[in-house]
């Protein structure tokens, strides 16, 4: 386990970041920080994928001088997955931000607990 730890340092960083993002998204009260957590979590997965797809000493899978030898290039699929994943997380982030704006306009708060309290107060008034 010991020597592998240093070889896989990117993956370890990715998993730690994933944990940080995950707990922030789950437990933080502030909506904006939740969204930041979401992005840390997703980016950690992309780091993980990119680190796994990289092979030492090879270049990005873009043809250079018509050289089609497979051994020159890294695996293109993880990079493709990362790009797709980025598109997905951008759209999800946009949706979360728009929800946050709606909530803020209605309840003048970004704190999800405070929003719940204000909503209940409003319901009681009716």
């Amino acid at each position: 386990m010991g020597p592998n730890l240093w070889v896989n340092v990117e993956e370890i960083a990715a998993v730690i970041l994933f944990g940080v993002g995950f707990t922030t998204l789950l437990l933080h009260k502030n909506m904006i920080k939740k969204i930041i957590g979401l992005n840390i979590m997703d980016t950690a997965v992309y780091l993980f994928l990119a680190a796994m797809g990289y092979i030492d000493g090879r270049v990005a899978p873009i043809l250079v001088n018509g050289n089609t030898d497979v051994n020159l290039y890294i695996n293109p699929i993880p990079s493709g997955l990362v790009l797709t994943g980025i598109v997905v997380s951008v759209s999800v982030t946009a949706l979360m931000l728009s929800l946050t704006i709606r909530l803020y306009r209605k309840y003048r708060s970004l704190d999800i607990d405070e929003i719940l309290i204000r909503m209940q107060r409003e319901e009681l008034k009716k």
């Binding site: 993002g21 995950f22 909506m31 979401l38 997965v45 929800l99 909530l103 309840y107 909503m119 409003e122």
Partner: peptide
């Protein structure tokens, strides 16, 4: 207001699920 909060909760739980899935 209720449905906005419901959507937020739904979204947070769903995103946690899809993060683990990813």
């Amino acid at each position: 207001g209720r449905s906005l909060i419901a959507a937020t909760r739904y979204m947070v739980m769903s995103l946690i699920g899809s993060g683990l899935f990813l």
